[in-house]
């Protein structure tokens, strides 16, 4: 056990954790918006919109995240009009490609979580709103959405943790996130166990915080 290496690599890994956290938070924000959007589409009675949303979530949940990142990072650059359009400014950066891939991926899972939450809402709540003469829009924003968010908290907490682990794939497209730096240190020092303990410890610590934060939210908003 090389304690010196563990101590000297800790600041480097901690620095890389910042990138991991940035990737995680940005993709969660975009993913939540996408997820809500597609969950609402999924509840729509229009068959076309419904199927479109289903297809989206099926596509992104049925393929590995690695494939999605590779398609976006290596693949999209091949399309000529994308290269010449303004989008290329974003798509040539591995950082943004990773965020796009993560957001689309977590959006698919989030849409499923939210959809099942919307479907399990007690009909009585909506009927109660109706009979009080509250408009459909307000019922949706003030009753359905808050209840659905509360319902989906436990599952969404799992999704955040899965996404935290998913950000490690950013290292495959040259981003130096926590896993990327850990791999770099492992391959230069050939001391995998020490680095694994430090990097794994940082990941576990983050998982622990997320887990407890979600628990706290669940308690706070329980009814």
């Amino acid at each position: 056990m090389d304690l010196d290496l563990m101590i000297s690599s800790f600041p480097k890994l901690l620095n890389a954790t910042l990138i991991t956290l940035k990737l995680l938070s940005l993709s969660l924000i975009f993913g939540l918006m996408l997820g809500l959007f597609f969950a609402i589409l999924r509840l729509n009675k229009n068959i076309f919109l419904n199927k479109f949303s289903y297809f989206y979530s099926y596509l992104f949940r049925g393929t590995p995240l690695l494939v999605q990142i590779f398609i976006i990072y290596f693949g999209l650059g091949q399309i000529e009009f994308l290269r010449s359009s303004f989008l290329w400014i974003i798509l040539k950066e591995p950082y943004w490609c990773a965020i796009i891939a993560f957001s689309l991926n977590t959006g698919a899972y989030t849409s499923e979580i939210l959809r099942s939450a919307f479907e399990t809402i007690n009909k009585g709540f909506i009927e109660a709103g109706d009979s009080l003469g509250i408009s459909k829009r307000i019922i949706f924003y003030k009753i359905q959405i808050p209840i659905a968010i509360r319902q989906s908290l436990p599952a969404y907490g799992n999704e955040i943790i899965l996404m935290l682990k998913g950000t490690s794939l950013a290292s495959t497209v040259t981003l130096m996130d926590l896993t990327g730096v850990a791999k770099y240190i492992i391959s230069t020092t050939f001391k995998p166990i020490e680095v694994f303990i430090v990097a794994g410890g940082i990941y576990l610590f983050m998982t622990f915080i997320i887990h407890n934060f979600i628990r706290y939210l669940e308690k706070k908003y329980s009814y």
Partner: peptide, 20 residues
């Protein structure tokens, strides 16, 4: 531990540390 640490990290550990 296994469910809290990225899969990639576990793979690197075994890949670089396994034969050792």
């Amino acid at each position: 531990i296994i469910r809290g640490v990225p899969e990639l990290l576990v793979i690197y550990l075994l890949f670089f540390g396994g034969s050792g």
